[in-house]
Write a protein that binds this DNA or RNA. Sequence first.
DNA 1: GTGCTGAGTTGACAGATGTCTAAGTAGGCG
DNA 2: CGCCTACTTAGACATCTGTCAACTCAGCAC
Lengths: 117, 117
Amino acid sequence: MPKQLTVLDAEVCCAPLATAAVPADAAADVAAAFKAMGDPVRLQLLSMITSAAAGEICVCDLTPAFELTGPTISHHLKVLREAGLVESDRRGTWVWYRANRSRLAALSAVLDVTPAD
Amino acid sequence: MPKQLTVLDAEVCCAPLATAAVPADAAADVAAAFKAMGDPVRLQLLSMITSAAAGEICVCDLTPAFELTGPTISHHLKVLREAGLVESDRRGTWVWYRANRSRLAALSAVLDVTPAD
DNA sequence: GTGCTGAGTTGACAGATGTCTAAGTAGGCG
DNA sequence: CGCCTACTTAGACATCTGTCAACTCAGCAC
């Protein structure tokens, strides 16, 4: 029994925060994504993955960027994966991570407040 | 000795996640904001405050929307305040909350991935 | 003043979270 | 096959977090 469902379909509903009160079920999904980004290490990992020149990046390039052990980095990557923010793919010896850009875009839209003059 | 500084000046630096790797100090600030939004109750509170018709909303209108005690709502509002996401203002008997829209806009920009084709 | 009501603070406690070490799995190479 | 490297999983542990009950503070009315 998983303590938290993996967000495979990246719901992230839609309506910007500022437009209308977010219903509870949508809030749970969006909050889960923000929670995953709520750790400095994970935010940096997500940034490194999202901004990777090749569109993806190897764990072996992520780990040495932090003064943390491999298992700890692996744990943070798992959290990002379960939040639907990144996807991973093993090719031979190495594992490559890439960002789920549509989910990032949806989250960005939720925070959008531009209509304010 | 506060365990965490209050983010008064709403740093939130600038460069979108996808543009370049976020430096550690900026990541700490942005992550703190996302962390505050990483709880479903707080996200709904933020949404109710941001979407309030009058631009602000009374705590007395927030509390009954949840099956939680007053102190718990008060705690969540404090977290949102310390993250620089909302501001409060006591007028007479009631306390009014309004959103810090510039900070929300900055966070939205951090997640922006539009340049992707 | 006393009393009432809205909101915040304090202290306590169960449960979640970040980190590590140790062990396990997957793939390449000799 | 064995061995090495890259990564993940499992357990343990200290810290942090969300919640509540009890209390305090601020403002209004009498």
